[in-house]
Design a protein around this nucleic acid. Structure first.
Length: 877
DNA sequence: ACGCTCACG
DNA sequence: ACGTACGTGAGCGTC
């Protein structure tokens, strides 16, 4: 079936304008919105592969009534000049790309889209409408999908709605959605709506009656009196709103869907213009015009040493060698791409054995060949390297440049930094899991996959290096992230020993407890049910048993611990559920969950990921060793099964309040710095200042409240969050915060400045120059923007702490190696390092840990590290 | 695939 | 008027 894509021009341009930092070309022409628009459009063309396409624009340039810009429609605040000047540019470019643009005097773009989409559907096309606006949802049908690109954490994801999608979200059909909108109104579209009826009321009424008219005729059946009266008193207003809200699907558009046939869009004219706009990363898309693709077809399969040897030799002296190591259970090979433009895949076959390939790769490493690879850590078993100078890691570079991406595969990097669309793993190996490419895989596919990987690595190195320089992150790349990769590799290799039999026993103990609780709970409830199902549990507690505390989540009742804890005093039976939950969690996630990862060496070799978090922390998976219980005694028991090997002990070192100390340093607040220099107990000192009591008279409660405030500050305080945490009123929480900022004026100043700077630049920065983009700061949504502000306050602090720990780890690992000690880092838990230390090395290791961790950074307050020794993780912590 | 819940810093 | 503390990962149930 043919695919017809319709783009809401102004809406997408507007989104692009706010989603892309403002910039100009060297002529001074603003181009950011055009750039963003093209990115979105290319993404759509790649993913939807449309046969037909058109872009609709509103005819009238917006009129300007107010100083401040709000949105692109003329009825509202005016469009910013920087955006307005880009409208003709994108139109011209689209024309040069032979893409149909449509505008109709007297009608809105919505009407054009509505009309064309329905015509397309009638002609048997599959229609996709691309818009940032929810208004268009009324057009959805079984063959018309409304696609709304969303920027989530800097990533654009697309929400798609057909009839079913709209029904799921709003509980009404797309046509009924018009009535919903008419009732609730939309200030941004100048639809008045019915005063007193909001989104909730509107959906309730329309899902019951189907239309405003029908609801009016049966007004006596509207159960909510407020809604009923609102409708009765404003019926005319509602009808007028409906007219305004309805998109005209019979506007006199002249072009037919068939005339929107998508021809070659990568024309000479368009390329010319792309060059003038200076969208360098997009030039490659027009490759077919300028030159043939310099990579595809240049893939060469090599299966004998006579051909392979000289290739490895050439690679030794090349300026840059993209390399990829392919392996699955039966295949093995290495692909290389360097100066001469060819990409070679040397695969295991005949005389080319696995050992031969490994030896040749090691030769390259030892010869200090300038290798570029997607991921050093995953390949270091073969690279066998700890020379941090010679190998470039493109995934780590890409992560530093934008830590918000979900993946850093070669295809992502090609798209982002080379403006190229290369086939991804899933496209080359359809419906195959990455970990297990089948042994009978077609050799051409392996060749293609391996060569694209090496090619992208080769190509991307310079682009990434350049960007790292531009963003002043080359230093943190070279001196923190890359050395860390090797430290993490060693840590993963080391693994941690776990007493499997003890873990099993622990699980059995939990099982006994769970069974008993289960019986009690069934007895109280009167029948059996799945306690693990929040849905069933909610229905039983709040439905059948009629406990107070109504709905909270979208899907039903909330049964979270915080809700249940409030019920506990009045309904002791609820504690059984809480206790059950606790035991069930411990059993499934930890007792049973960890057991499957214990290897033949009695150790767990978890993964420590370096390209996941937004702030720069590392993350832990398969299993997660960074969330092993510690707060509750029963959970803490698990830590006793983590043990050092024979002849070793554990040494645990953790930073004391590193984030607050960083806050003291970065804010340069005199009082907080003084508090750290004079008091051991920072929370008590804070309590004393905030509550105006002498230090000695601070009560336990005051101290713990002050502690909560301290945490809150680091998280980007909000009165709501604090009030929730402390179970106090928002008013009280507000007062606490006020008093806190009076006590520490430097902190207030610093946090305000963090937000201000982040808004100016679009990202926040740590002490060591690590950046985190915060796209939420420019969101039109108040809540999102507030989230962005909290992130702007928290990220530099959390991120700097992460940087410091990374530096410490590198230095600890380095000194252990230099001194030829056999002790090894086995775990990192954000502010804690666990070392498996040989008994005769204990004193030395303690010193190495404390010294390197405390000296990892020089702040204007001391960094304090607690070091403890024990025979299991619990004892050492 | 996604939401809920809960474990950690 | 609205719904929030920051950063993660895993297991489970539900769709």
């Amino acid at each position: 079936m043919s695919k017809f894509v319709l783009i809401d021009g102004h809406s997408i341009l507007n989104r692009a304008f706010y989603g892309v930092p403002i910039f100009t070309n060297s002529e001074g022409l603003h181009t950011n919105a055009v750039f963003g628009f093209l990115n979105i459009m290319f993404k759509i063309i790649d993913s939807k592969q449309p046969d037909y396409m058109a872009v609709a624009f509103d005819v009238h340039q917006p009129t300007f009534r107010h100083e401040m810009f709000k949105d692109y429609k003329g009825t509202r605040k005016p469009m910013m000049e920087e955006l307005r000047e880009q409208v003709p540019v994108i139109k011209e470019l689209l024309q040069k790309m032979n893409i149909t643009t449509v505008e109709l005097p007297g009608y809105e773009a919505d009407d054009v889209i509505g009309t064309l989409s329905k015509k397309g559907e009638k002609a048997g096309m599959e229609v996709d409408v691309i818009s940032g606006d929810r208004d268009l949802l009324q057009l959805a049908s079984d063959h018309i999908t409304i696609c709304i690109p969303k920027t989530k954490k800097g990533q654009t994801t697309v929400e798609e709605y057909n009839t079913e999608g709209v029904r799921k979200l709003y509980k009404v059909t797309p046509t009924e959605f018009i009535d919903v909108k008419a009732l609730m109104g939309d200030s941004s579209d100048n639809i008045p709506g019915v005063p007193g009826i909001g989104e909730k009321g509107a959906t309730a009424i329309i899902s019951q009656f189907g239309s405003i008219e029908n609801a009016y005729d049966h007004a006596d059946e509207i159960s909510n009196t407020r809604n009923r009266n609102a409708l009765l008193n404003n019926y005319e207003m509602a009808q007028m709103s409906k007219t305004l809200a309805t998109i005209n699907i019979q506007s006199p558009v002249e072009v037919t869907p068939e005339q929107c046939k998508l021809e070659d869009i990568y024309t000479e004219d368009a390329l010319e213009m792309i060059k003038r706009l200076e969208f360098k990363s997009m030039i490659q898309r027009f490759g077919s015009v300028t030159s043939t693709n310099d990579c595809e077809g240049g893939f060469k399969y090599i299966n004998n040493p006579f051909d392979a040897d000289p290739i490895f030799e050439q690679a030794k002296n090349a300026e840059n060698v993209g390399i990829f190591i392919y392996r699955n259970k039966d295949n093995f090979g290495v692909s290389l791409c360097f100066n001469n433009g060819n990409v070679y895949y040397i695969g295991k076959e005949g005389f080319v054995t696995e050992d031969y390939i490994i030896e040749k790769v090691r030769d390259l490493v030892n010869a200090k060949a300038k290798l570029t690879i997607l991921n050093i850590k995953e390949n270091n078993d073969i690279l066998g390297n700890d020379d941090v100078e010679s190998i470039f890691d493109i995934s780590i570079a890409a992560y530093l440049l934008n830590p918000l991406q979900n993946t850093y595969d070669y295809d992502d990097i090609a798209r982002e930094y080379l403006g190229m669309n290369v086939p991804a793993f899933d496209e080359i190996f359809p419906k195959t899991k990455k970990s297990e490419t089948p042994s009978d895989e077609i050799p051409e596919n392996i060749l293609k996959y391996a060569c694209y990987n090496a090619y992208v690595a080769y190509k991307a190195k310079d682009a990434l290096t350049e960007k790292l320089k531009e963003t002043e992150m080359l230093d943190i790349y070279n001196n923190v992230e890359i050395p860390l990769t090797y430290a993490l590799y060693d840590m993963e290799q080391a693994g941690i020993m776990v007493a499997g039999d003890k873990l099993k026993e622990y699980g059995e103990r939990l099982k006994t407890g769970i069974d008993a609780l289960e019986k009690d709970i069934y007895a109280e409830a009167g029948h059996e049910f799945n306690i693990n199902s929040p849905k069933q549990l909610g229905e039983i507690l709040f439905g059948e048993m009629q406990l107070p505390g109504g709905k909270k989540t979208k899907t039903g009742y909330s049964t979270s611990a915080s809700v249940l804890e409030k019920l506990e005093p009045d309904y002791p039976f609820v504690s059984k559920i809480l206790e059950y939950r606790q035991l069930a969690k411990l059993k499934s996630t930890y007792a049973d969950g960890l057991a499957v990862y214990i290897g033949k060496d009695n150790r767990i070799h978890g993964k420590f990921n370096q390209t996941i978090t937004a702030t720069g922390r590392i993350s832990s998976t398969e299993p997660n060793l960074q969330n092993i219980p510690v707060r509750m005694p029963l959970g803490r028991e698990i830590r006793k099964v983590f043990i050092p090997k024979e002849g070793c002990v554990f040494i645990d070192a953790d930073y004391s309040q590193i984030e607050l100390r960083i806050l003291a340093h970065m804010s340069d607040d005199k009082n907080l710095i003084d508090a750290y220099n004079h008091s051991k107990d920072i929370h008590a000192a804070t309590a004393s200042l905030v509550f105006h009591v002498p230090l000695e008279e601070v009560t336990k409660e005051q101290r713990s409240n002050a502690k909560a405030v301290n945490f809150g500050i680091v998280y980007g305080i909000s009165s709501f969050g604090l009030s929730n945490d402390l179970s106090i009123s928002r008013k009280e929480a507000e007062q606490y915060i006020k008093d806190y900022f009076i006590s520490y004026p430097g902190i207030k100043n610093y946090l305000d400045n963090s937000v201000k700077k982040a808004k100016e630049k679009g990202y926040s920065v740590t002490m060591f120059g690590r950046r985190r983009p915060i796209p939420e700061l420019t969101s039109g949504n108040f809540m999102q923007r507030q989230f962005g502000e909290r992130v702007a306050m928290n990220s530099p602090i959390q991120g700097s702490a992460a940087d410091i720990m990374k530096i410490a780890m590198i230095n600890v690992a380095k000194e252990l190696k230099e001194k030829d000690l056999k002790s090894k880092i086995v775990l990192q838990v954000h502010d804690e390092l666990l070392i498996e230390a040989y008994e005769n090395e204990v004193e030395q290791v303690k010193d190495i840990l404390k010294r390197n961790m405390e000296q990892a950074a020089h702040l204007n307050v001391p960094l304090d590290v607690d070091v403890q020794v024990g025979n299991n993780w619990d004892e050492a912590h």
